[in-house]
Amino acid sequence: MNLTLKIWRQNDAADAGRLVDYPVEGITEDMSFLEMLDVLNEQLQARGEEPVAFDSDCREGICGMCSLMINGEAHGPEVTTTCQLHMRSFKDGETITIEPWRASAFPIIRDLVVDRSAFDRIIQAGGYISVNTGAAPEANNIQVPKVAADRAFDTATCIGCGACAAACPNASAMLFLGAKVTHLGELPQGQAERSPRVVNMLNQHDAEGFGGCTNIGECATACPKEIPLDVISQLNKDFRTAKKYAG
């Protein structure tokens, strides 16, 4: 198939950036979206033009590195990551617009590559259970009801890609935050730090410049791991509880 790509090109943070048109030919539907970009990059280099920079690593939908807005949708039209999107989801002759994640808390580094270190800092603010190596009790001393274990797992599948914030009109990362608060909050091991965790992580989220949630739901629609929107309700509930007891 032949396609026209409109790709965001930007040399560095200081550059204004622009959309550039690239025709590509000979794309097959078995190619992944990123392999299609590989083909473009080989063609660009053959012509002496610098390839388009984009992030990807595992290319099997789990590392969370890939991050493209495709025709205005985070990770494109399917419920999956950009790397697992295949060209059979597009039609011959189509024009595809490819942009980096949209959120001021994810500044652009070059072309389609953004800086997501804000997510690491949110985890650093409390997204963990404090237990030093060697201090753990025997594993089966901690019983976890299966329902809680399953919910903890479902929310722990977040890959930290940032699609939620990129899709949200407010650039809120509360789905990411809610997923972590729910994962650790469902488990008995996570109770001791439950209240300070939610307060500290939320403060960091706001300090990074992510917006507040206004229940639009774009985040859950864009999430490649289908993290449910109700983790944000859990986040709000935990925050309310934390504030009540803190006075």
Binding site: Y128, A139, Q143, K146
Partner: peptide
Amino acid sequence: TNIIDQCVAQGVPFARDYGGLL
């Protein structure tokens, strides 16, 4: 065996049976 203890304490959501054990 220590690894499993450590990971569970950190909150790794391993599969469990209906009794809540690993």
